[in-house]
Design a protein around this nucleic acid. Structure first.
Lengths: 152, 152
DNA sequence: TATTGTTATACTCTATAACTATA
DNA sequence: TATAGTTATAGAGTATAACAATA
């Protein structure tokens, strides 16, 4: 029954939540980066270049990522009408459905974890976490926005 | 100024903390898994097999991981006196020093984030996070124990 | 026979550099 | 010339299957 510091607790909490999503994604043969791709595309139809910026990856890495996702039928490439050099990437219906399944399973897991807290604890956690995240967003200028896999 | 749910907030918080560690580790040319290896070895001298269990990886994956860490002088292999099939893995002094530097930088980052909260908020966060993590440990039987990179 | 660790092989993920096609 | 995307190549990380040495 060791006393844990706030920092250790936050680190453990992060690994716990991150690992939960990773496990649920793996159940559907999705890596974390493929899961992020689906998350980014949920409400966007970016070019390959823009997608690389969202993911913080080199464009050559994204070529392979989208190759594999397209081979599985999760995303589609289309030529951009505006610029014949560009390629637009979007989610297919199976891709959208898969993303929804993973997100639902993940949310169920976290809901179950939250159920172990008392209602006042849940309220306190919600308030502090919200402030923590928004304060960080303001301080750094990076808004994580809403959704499973936020992006700048 | 969208309202975020507790689940979204927790997910964002987790990505934020996880990404912070990942960035600090990368500054020292450490991947997350190599960082976990150093963390596990901080207070253990396991066999390859035991290390694989701590990391949740196949033993063949750990062979390559330790090959690369050993090549960098961060860890050392020794024959086990107890069983001539076994190999004991331990941190070298440079490995220990590197792990300490990464941990210190990470803790400084999180401390800075926590400084954006009020003292009562910090106290509330600490209490709830501790309960969250310990409640999960009790419910699942997995004790994350102390330290930067907890293991079963 | 069973276990420990390594090797062989295959695939994902990542980056750098060079290339093609457009702008 | 500059930009968008792909290809070539190299290396880390992962797993499965086969193997050698030891128990």
């Amino acid at each position: 029954m060791a006393t844990i510091t706030t920092i250790d607790g936050l680190a453990q909490l992060s690994f716990l939540i991150y690992g939960t999503l990773e496990r649920r994604a793996a159940e559907h043969d999705l890596s974390m980066v493929q899961t992020r791709v689906l998350g980014v595309l949920r409400d966007r139809r970016p070019t390959m270049n823009q997608l690389a910026a969202y993911l913080g990856l080199d464009k050559s890495s994204v070529t392979g990522l989208i190759d594999r996702a397209e081979r599985r039928g999760l995303v589609a490439r289309e030529p951009s009408p505006a610029d014949r050099r560009s390629v637009l990437v979007s989610l297919t219906e199976p891709g959208r459905a898969l993303a929804a399944r993973v997100q639902a399973a993940f949310e169920a897991d976290v809901t179950e974890m939250l159920a172990r807290l008392t209602p006042p604890e849940r309220a306190a956690l919600s308030a502090v976490v919200t402030h923590f995240v928004t304060a960080h967003a303001e301080a750094t200028g990076v808004d994580l926005a809403a959704g499973l896999l936020p992006s700048p």
